[in-house]
Design a protein around this nucleic acid. Sequence first.
DNA 1: TACGCGATCGTG
DNA 2: ACGATCGCGTAT
Length: 193
Amino acid sequence: MSRSNKRLSKTFFSNKTTLELAQALLGKVLVHKSPAGVIKGIINETEAYSQDEESCHAFGGKRSKRNEVMFWRAGHLYVYFTYGMHYCINIVTGEPDRAEAVLIRSVLPLEGQDIMLLNRKGRQKNLADGPAKLAMAYGFGKAHNGVDLLDGASVIYLEDQGYKPEEITQTERIGISKAKDLPWRFVCRKCIQ
DNA sequence: TACGCGATCGTG
DNA sequence: ACGATCGCGTAT
C-alpha cells in the first residue's frame, strides 16, 4: 500500500495532557478487527474527562468495579454501560492511578460500513455519530472493557493514516449535569488526508 | 435490600 | 419533548 498506516504506540500518549490528547485523537483512525470483519472510522468528536472534575465517573479518585480501567496506564479502552441499554468507549489517557480519559463521541466511517450497518440493525444513516451509536456500530460491549490498544496483538487499536482535522471547534461537553462549564469537547467536521 | 439516576438514542 | 431500560453508587 502506498500510504503508511502507522499503528499508534506508547509514544503517542507520552508527554501529552488529556486535553491535548482529546485534540490529537481527532483524525486518528479507530480500528476493530471484529469477528465479522475489519471496521475503521476517523475520529471526529471527543470529550476529555478527569478525576478532578465532578462529571467524571471517577471524581475524587474514587475507584470502583465500574471505573477501575480509568486508573490504568494510558492506551487502555474503558467501556461503560449506561441508560440501561447503551455502551460507550473512552481511551484512557492519564498516568497510572490517575483517572483521565477521552470519550470517543463520533467517527466518520471509513471501512467496513457493511458490518456497521448490520451491527446497527439496518439503520441506513447516522451509523456512528454518537458515543453509543459508535459503540454499537463497532460491536463494542463489556467484553472489550480493559483492552490494551497498545498491545500489538490487540484487535482494537488506533492508526495514523495521515488525516488532519480541518477546523477544530471547542465547546462545552454534552449530556452532563455537573461541570458543564468546562470547554472540553472537540469536534471537527472534516478530516483531510 | 431499596432507590434514583444516568458521559444516550430514536421517535413523535 | 419523552420513554425505554438496568447497572451502579449511595443510602437504609
